[in-house]
């Protein structure tokens, strides 16, 4: 059994990892500089993009990369992200999932329902970011009233994206050892898959 459990399964191909990290790196830069513009106490974070004035110039361009990355991410993953019946049961068992009560967590496929919801929320937020970000990039073409509402929308998206990211990074790294490698060299162990994504594990190991 042990050698079975240590078998390596391929989870994400090279293209998927590139897309994920373009989105990941650009989003973290955007979050840091965006929070710098929102909170004077964090203004020093503009240093990540070369200081205040240059952060103001680069933030929208990094946003363009993020938008393109999100476009690809949605295109390549959307097929796998629709919720199945098991997923709805999974969502209702979220408490068991959070408290590591594995026995009561319905079995997930390639992605569990939490990951799928994360995908949909990030997709929605990306749209809000882009739609509200463009006027803020070129304020000379828009009225003050509209721009003020766009600042509000942009901030709300930041808050949502920030909160989601905290959980996403936690679960993808220290909470579940063996997960981060899925996004680094693209592989996971069969044991990891059997525990976290039994449905997918079965598909992958079916003779």
């Amino acid at each position: 059994m042990a050698d079975m459990a240590d078998r390596i399964l391929h989870r994400f191909n090279f293209a998927e990892r590139i897309v994920h990290w373009v989105v990941g790196v650009t989003f973290v830069l955007l979050l840091a500089t965006g929070l710098a513009f929102a909170y004077p106490a964090l203004f020093w974070l503009t240093a990540l993009l070369g200081g205040g004035p240059s952060a103001r110039v680069l933030h929208p361009w990094v946003g363009v990369l993020f938008g393109i990355g999100m476009g690809f991410m949605i295109a390549i993953w959307i097929r796998d992200m629709f919720l199945s019946d098991v997923d709805w049961r999974w969502l209702r068992a979220m408490r068991a999932y959070a408290t590591r009560d594995s026995a009561n967590v319905p079995p997930a496929g390639k992605y569990n329902a939490g990951q799928k919801m994360f995908f949909w929320f990030q997709g929605l937020l990306a749209v809000v970011f882009v739609v509200s970000g463009v006027p803020l990039w070129f304020p000379e073409f828009f009225g003050s009233g509209l721009l003020q509402w766009m600042r509000l929308a942009h901030y709300l998206a930041t808050l949502g994206g920030g909160l989601l990211l905290i959980v996403h990074v936690y679960l993808g790294t220290i909470a579940y050892p063996g997960t981060a490698r899925a996004m680094i060299d693209g592989t996971v162990t069969a044991r990891w898959a059997r525990h976290h994504h039994p449905g997918w594990h079965e598909e992958q190991t079916r003779p």
Binding site: S84, P107, A175, P198
Partner: peptide, 23 residues
């Protein structure tokens, strides 16, 4: 509270749930 979820500890357990139902 929960620490890292170490899979070795689940070694003897059956995989969770009824895998056949996974869509």
């Amino acid at each position: 509270r929960y620490g890292p979820e170490r899979l070795e500890e689940h070694e003897d357990h059956e995989p969770r749930g009824d895998t056949g139902a996974a869509a």
